[in-house]
Design a protein around this nucleic acid. Structure first.
Length: 258
DNA sequence: ATTAATGTTCAGAA
DNA sequence: TTTCTGAACATTAA
């Protein structure tokens, strides 16, 4: 059972709530998967319910923060687990889709969602990013190249790897690619272990409506003017790349020499 | 009143 | 062809 109970302007639902209902009600959940930043529920007959949270969306198995931004509700027949799932989204930039396998492939196949950051091999990682002349920070956010890296984690991993965010991809050295690959895995795995970052506005929660803890381990993100935790001498700065904030330590993360 | 916010996607221009 | 900018989507809080 699905319904959008909130009175706000509705989020994008493809192909439409009734059609998704007709296609999925009564089916059994066979699998739950992640595709880059999207969460998928797969039914026993291979229908895909796709949640795309974007900036403020949450997929919840326990009570939502409030009722005002509830977008989708899915009720399960009684079983030993939770009785409902909600999609809650304050800003409403998120989307909800119901797609057959071939539609999923067409919509979010290899053209739009590259290999996942947590499963890609080092050589492939480098091979998919290195030819570009774009700044490495911007390229890391390109989901068609490598999927799953978000804005705050891009800044964090570049700081761990000691690479200047404006370095063109094609200027990175072999050792820098190795450091970046390791930093990517490390930052992402640690962030997952701490259940994500709940920033000052408190929006992000895990599926059980619990705040994450990785914000307490941010090295540079949202720490402009503060002292670098590594060198303890550089002052963290904020710049804007592709209309998104980037934070880095100009002392640890030197620009490429020409 | 203005600005910025863990994101995606498109149009149009360099 | 590649890369850039700006805008749009909608809401809230500093």
């Amino acid at each position: 059972m699905l319904r959008p109970p909130c009175d706000r302007r509705p989020i994008a639902v493809v192909p439409g709530i009734e059609a998704i209902e007709r296609r999925s009600v009564g089916r059994r959940v066979a699998d739950i998967r992640r595709l880059g930043k999207r969460v998928l529920i797969v039914t026993d007959d291979a229908y895909h319910l796709v949640f795309e949270p974007r900036m403020t969306g949450l997929v919840l198995l326990s009570d939502p923060p409030d009722d005002r931004a509830l977008r989708i509700e899915i009720r399960f027949e009684p079983w030993e687990g939770p009785e409902r799932l909600w999609f809650w989204d304050r800003r409403g930039l998120g989307t909800f889709s119901g797609l057959e396998t071939d539609e999923l492939e067409r919509r979010w196949g290899g053209e739009t969602v590259g290999p996942d950051a947590l499963s890609i091999e080092p050589a492939d990682f480098r091979g998919r990013l290195a030819p570009s002349r774009r700044p490495i920070k911007v390229a890391l956010l390109d989901q068609t190249r490598v999927a799953g890296i978000g804005n705050l984690y891009a800044s964090e991993m570049l700081h761990v790897a000691r690479i200047h965010p404006e370095t063109p991809c094609d200027r990175l050295t072999g050792p820098q690619w190795e450091r970046l690959f390791r930093a990517m895995r490390d930052v992402l795995e640690t962030a997952i272990r701490y259940e994500g970052s709940t920033l000052a506005d408190g929006t992000y929660r895990n599926a059980l409506n619990k705040a994450g803890g990785y914000q307490n381990h941010h090295r540079v993100y949202d720490r402009a003017e503060e002292r670098c935790p590594d060198c303890e001498r550089g002052i963290i700065v904020r710049i804007v790349q592709a209309q998104r904030s980037t934070f880095f330590c100009p002392r640890c993360q030197r620009p490429a020499r020409s």
